[in-house]
């Protein structure tokens, strides 16, 4: 888990809120119409947000890649 990082691209985020609504750990929120990681400590980097983001604005990056 340590070698993974959650990346957000606010320029592409349209603020639909799907990632936040279906995040199993509720670590995401929409703030001023853009997604934000509000609780980094609890994020398990499961990547469900990436799979369901229609705008490719949030994803898990593996280090070394």
């Amino acid at each position: 888990m340590e070698n993974k990082k959650l990346v957000i691209n606010p320029a592409w985020c349209k603020g639909c809120g799907i990632c936040a609504a279906f995040c199993p750990k509720e670590v995401l929120a929409i703030v001023h119409e853009k997604v934000q990681l509000i609780n980094e400590a609890d994020c398990i980097k499961c990547g469900l947000c990436e799979l369901r983001c229609p705008d490719y604005a949030i994803y898990i990056e593996k280090e070394g890649e």
């Binding site: 320029a11 349209k14 639909c16 809120g17 229609p54």
Partner: peptide, 28 residues
């Protein structure tokens, strides 16, 4: 920077796409 998958499979300079917020087409 987009994810590796998006970078490889999409024309990144054409993104973000035209679909509305919440539209399922981007996911599909």
């Amino acid at each position: 920077m987009p994810s590796k998958l998006i970078e490889k499979t999409m024309r990144v300079n054409r993104l973000p796409h035209i679909w509305c917020p919440g539209c399922g087409h981007g996911i599909l």
